[in-house]
Amino acid sequence: MDLFPLWNSLRIAGISTGIVFFAGILSAYYIAKAPRAVKGLLDVALTLPLVLPPTVVGFLLLLAFGPRRPLGAFLLERFGLRMTMTWWSATLATSVVIFPLMYRTCRGAFESFDENLAAAGRTLGLSNTYIFWRIRMPGCRAGILAGTVLSFARALGEYGATSMIAGYTPGRTATISTTVYQLWRTNEDGLALRWVLVNVAISFAVLLAVNLLEKRERRR
């Protein structure tokens, strides 16, 4: 059993969770402070990938990053960066798909934060940076952690957009989910089942971790 799909899946999920961790927190923080009209519009736009079929997201990404499309061509010519059929294109697709999960959980956490705590910090003379990192972030820790773990779990399960933009090349772009589909299609059910069990085991562990974390947070 070639373990490349496992390694590739973990690599893609890990990197895209890392990207989305910062992007999600920052956009949640700034959008929570934005004027109402801007907020509503951005909120819808950023949540869209959550409800769109992954194939639609994949199609839209191909429209932008396909090698003959303006953006894709530019990146290819200028930087030699091929945005399709590579493992990092899967990272791009996965990031877009999981972004709303991180963004929405963070926004929920920021919105339920007691603003009087930040106000108290300001009247005591604490800098805004100190307040953000030492008071606001710890106060929203549970939500941010939950968002991160959920994003990672969803990233591992990403199939639709990834298969469209990165395809299935054994040893290069194959992930667990695309491998399962490929093996089933070619009647290798036994091997497919093994990968299914690997995927279930990882997801199980991740969700178990979420529950344990939540329980610990509630005790605090």
Partner: peptide
């Protein structure tokens, strides 16, 4: 608010929940 140097005690005190008494006063 930082430059005004006025103290305001909030109705529910607004103590920082994840900090100890010492750390709160240190703020």
């Amino acid at each position: 608010p930082q430059a005004r140097r006025v103290g305001l005690m909030f109705q529910r005190y607004a103590l920082f929940p994840q900090m100890t008494v010492w750390q709160n006063v240190r703020c």
